[in-house]
Amino acid sequence: MTSGTLHRLSAFTTDPNGGNPAGVWIGEALPEPDTMQRIAAEVGFSETAFVAPSVGANRTVRYFSPEAEVSFCGHATIATGVVLGEENGEGTYQLSTSVGLVSVTVNQRDGIYEASLTSVEPEDMPASSALVHEALSALRWTQADLDYSVLPAKAYAGAWHLILAVVEADRLTNLDYDFEALKALMLQENLTTLQLIWRESPDVFHARNPFPVGGIVEDPATGAAAAALGGYLRSAKLVAAPTTILIHQGEAMGRPSRLVVSIPSEGGIVVTGQAVRI
Rank of each mutant, 00 (worst) to 15 (best):
L139D: 10
L139I: 02
W141V: 08
W141A: 06
T142R: 09
T142L: 05
T142P: 10
Q143V: 10
Q143G: 04
Q143R: 09
D145W: 02
D145T: 07
D147A: 14
D147Q: 02
Y148I: 13
S149T: 15
V150Q: 13
L151G: 00
P152G: 04
A153V: 11
A153E: 05
K154F: 03
A155W: 06
Y156S: 12
Y156W: 15
Y156P: 08
W160T: 09
H161M: 03
H161V: 03
L162P: 10
L162H: 07
L162D: 01
L164A: 04
A165E: 06
V166I: 08
V167I: 09
E168T: 05
E168W: 00
E168F: 01
A169D: 08
D170V: 14
D170Y: 01
D170F: 12
R171M: 06
L172D: 10
T173C: 02
N174T: 15
N174F: 14
L175H: 13
L175V: 09
Y177F: 15
D178V: 07
F179I: 08
F179D: 14
E180K: 13
E180Q: 10
E180M: 09
E180S: 14
E180V: 02
A181S: 11
L182K: 12
K183F: 02
A184I: 03
L185N: 04
Q188W: 01
N190W: 02
L191H: 13
L191G: 10
T193V: 13
T193G: 11
L194F: 01
L194R: 01
L194G: 07
Q195F: 09
L196Y: 08
I197V: 15
W198Q: 08
W198I: 00
R199P: 00
R199N: 00
E200K: 11
E200H: 10
S201C: 06
D203K: 08
D203Q: 11
V204F: 00
F205C: 08
F205P: 06
H206N: 12
A207E: 05
P210A: 06
P210L: 10
P210Q: 06
P210F: 04
P210I: 11
P212H: 11
P212W: 02
P212D: 12
